[in-house]
Design a protein around this nucleic acid. Structure first.
Lengths: 202, 202
DNA sequence: GCGAAAAGTTACCAGCAGTAAGTAACGGGG
DNA sequence: CCCCGTTACTTACTGCTGGTAACTTTTCGC
């Protein structure tokens, strides 16, 4: 849906920005949803009805784009899990619902999820963690508070948060290539592991 | 250590292959260790003392290279964890040792780990799972056998295997950017979560 | 009105994955 | 013994992508 086939060089009439940052990010999501996780910045620019340097001006390079999209996806996940839980107290069934909501959000944004977790092959150490860190920061806090509440050492919170997020990411990746398994089933199994531990409750 | 600065075109003298597949993979590991996870196939070819089409003939494209290196890294991890456990029965301390050995192996092969888990931005769905699948296949078997042994449902084995591997990968990634934490400490914390579950043992 | 700043586009560069075409040595059949 | 198909390389290219420099046109303050 690019409105103008081509624009003249020079500042456009009307004294307004032709697109803002959000428009570019929306276009990026459309392109990724359509063309897959290997989409190029050029394609994003075309979809936004604009040229590449504008994309660089609005959102930055490829790593910045991935980061911005990671933030959006993370927000949507937080929203989905929050409404799924809706003030429920922390329990195994609550955890199951949390994981299931997570899985469903990933399924709704397959290609975007792959794009964001795919990384940029460059300073990927930081890049790959972009989505993870956004998810872990609040999770770390929640875990620390909760562990303190049940008289347990809250010092494990950060490591646990990264571990849980990694588990969810890998399970999501595996699950979206195996559509025979239901989200409920997988969520229940992972919840079982995370709540009761490897040996299970006696 | 490329022996010859330049070679004439045409079949080389001696009636022998100038390098075999293993040599190319060794060269790839050296390049990645030196130049980081963003290394190019061209650089690998130069390091191997050969040209690009030879790399394509011996190991294939970038995805195949990543896959072959994933297999090597996976083998090294299996070896490290196996010698670390050395016939020990499955217990929390054994699990801790397993995780710690895993972390140390990743630390020993930082850039290779990042290269392999970095994916190729393309059909990454399969690509990213290459290292994971190699690790999960035996782990799935182990878990299924063990769960059967303790009279628990073994049907969770596959999902658990992917979950555990994802947890380890993400924790590794986070840990290697945070050298203030010791491997023992992190391994102990993750082992605690995985063995006792989120609420802990009463 | 006029010139500096703003907001675009065009046109380019460098690097990379992957491939087609060319070249020289080997080796078996006449 | 020589000749030609096969083998095993290199050179040289294409196509694409991330990123940037240089140019063009409008706006707006003085």
């Amino acid at each position: 849906m690019s409105e103008s086939i081509s624009r003249r060089p020079g500042r456009p009439l009307g004294g307004q920005l032709v697109v803002d940052r959000e428009h570019v990010l929306d276009a990026a999501e459309r392109v990724i949803r359509r063309d897959g996780a290997g989409s190029s910045l050029e394609a994003v620019a075309v979809e936004a009805g604009v040229t590449k340097p504008i994309v660089y001006d609005r959102v930055g390079g490829r790593a910045d784009l991935a980061d911005a999209l990671a933030e959006r996806l993370s927000d949507r996940m937080v929203l989905a899990t929050r409404t799924a839980l809706a003030g429920e107290t922390l329990s195994q069934t609550g955890l199951t619902r949390f994981i299931e909501a997570n899985l469903r959000t990933v399924a709704d944004h397959r290609e975007l999820f792959l794009y964001v977790t795919g990384g940029s092959t460059e300073q990927t150490a930081l890049g790959r963690l972009s989505l993870a860190e956004r998810s872990t920061t609040p999770l770390t806090k929640t875990l620390a508070v909760w562990r303190s509440g049940i008289q347990q050492d809250p010092g494990v919170a950060e490591a646990w948060a990264f571990g849980i997020v990694g588990m969810l990411q890998m399970v999501s990746q595996w699950w979206i290539t195996q559509e025979d398994r239901s989200a409920e089933e997988v969520a229940g199994q992972i919840s079982e592991l995370l709540w009761n531990g490897l040996p299970g409750r006696a």
